[in-house]
Design a protein around this nucleic acid. Structure first.
Lengths: 245, 245
DNA sequence: CGGGGACTTGATACTGTTCAATTTCCGTGG
DNA sequence: CCACGGAAATTGAACAGTATCAAGTCCCCG
């Protein structure tokens, strides 16, 4: 499998998130879950385009996405922006802010979304009493580090086609993990945002998608994507030079 | 300042690491430090080229670098490798392995080095009793996430010259934070490793260094670097198109 | 002192960017 | 409900930035 760019959803307790079903690792007890639920009871709705937090704002809480879709981005002084991730339900955002108590990136809703707020002070306190939670929190943070390593590998050593193939397969996998179709989904982000994430220009994203379509690897229609040939998409990764498709 | 690519050393208690001097945040008490010292007493020496751990090996401990220099790298199936970081004294490595209890990258000594081993189970246990340590550990992990975001920005949206300038300034800053010269230092890594880290080929690294030298921004002599004009190097960042120097 | 890896430099090829012109999509208001 | 307008997406052509290939030099280790 594509070691470099895999995503296990970074999940944590969140009462109103259907936690019991897919969010929680098996090793929490009933009682522990109850405690977590009191902590995670704060939920809020966001509209497409709303900021969950902004770079520079004070850190209070982590956020578990309940429904919807977010992007995180860092901004450069000169206006350049880099999308650092796309987050879907069950994933946690805000981890970057722990280091300085100030958010270092923006989190923006890509569609109407609901989140659970997890006040970090309370989370820390609770995790002192609950080793399972402590371990879980550490794993979530570590998983984010591993994810970032995968993106570095992607940005540092893959060509445009490989990057886009990796991206599509990664989305596919994450949708599948949530019970949605692995082969057919809607992109919530623009070509520009994909490009920013993958380190390429929106025109190149568009061209490469068209090329994949021409080669019958995928079917694109604006934001609708169907993966027609996942084996060949996978084969696109892990190949040093350009490969004739 | 170069927001995107700043590094505060990720430090943690380590008895034999001259901790009191520069490794420890002020908020640990004498007694707490003593407890940490018992934990961090394991130290080991490594020779240039030795692996501290390998991708796939079992996770037991975090490692605090006491002296020397390391690189971490992830390997792709097809043989491609991506250097994900260069670590210097006071920094912690191994955080990626917490997520799965398996190391996801290699750590290799770039020169003879000494490390302190921090058994993670004991670290977790101790941090349950010591909120200061818990908070510190969280900050270290979060800082790594922020660092990775900076590299994504670099890899995703900077040109070769900017990347190299950012890299040199970042090293400079980290040396300075350790009491070494900010303007004159020895590179411990090869052009190839720099290139892998920055997402460019070794020839491009070499050429760009020569170009910087020609423009009197730096003085290079193989692995010896002197930064002659830090303001102009800094100005190189944060400029969208190519700038005549 | 010899040898091999690391580094530099040049010429050329190629991937992806830039600029520009359309076309398509979608939300908004009539 | 349809028409409008602006943003998003597609596509083409020329160009720029790096990669690639190759030759030669330097440095360091044994």
């Amino acid at each position: 499998m594509q070691k470099a760019f895999t995503a296990t959803p970074t999940q944590i307790a969140c009462s109103s998130c259907n936690l019991r079903e897919f969010c929680l690792p098996a090793d929490f007890t009933e009682d522990e879950i109850r405690q977590l639920e009191t902590l995670a009871s704060l939920k809020r709705a966001y509209r497409r385009g709303d900021y969950l937090y902004r770079s520079g704002s004070r850190f209070e809480s982590l956020y578990a996405i309940r429904t919807g879709f977010f992007k995180t981005q860092v901004l450069h002084e000169d206006g350049r922006e880099q999308v650092t991730g796309f987050q879907m339900p069950g994933e946690i955002i805000g981890l970057d802010a722990i280091s300085t108590d100030i958010h270092t990136c923006d989190a923006v809703a890509l569609e109407d979304s609901e989140i659970c707020e997890l006040p970090f002070n309370r989370l820390e306190k609770l995790s002192r009493q609950m080793p399972t939670l402590q371990r879980h929190l550490h794993k979530i943070m570590s998983r984010e580090i591993v994810r970032d390593q995968g993106i570095m590998l992607l940005l540092g050593s893959m060509r445009a086609e490989e990057r886009l193939a990796a991206f599509l397969l990664n989305l596919s996998q994450r949708f599948a993990a949530r019970g949605y179709s692995a082969s057919s989904f809607r992109l919530r982000m623009t070509r520009q945002e994909i490009g920013s994430y993958l380190g390429m220009k929106l025109e190149t994203v568009s061209r490469t998608l068209s090329y994949f379509q021409e080669k019958r690897l995928i079917d694109v229609n604006n934001k609708s994507i169907e993966l027609l040939d996942m084996p060949r998409l996978l084969a696109l990764l892990g190949q040093q030079p350009a490969t004739p498709l």
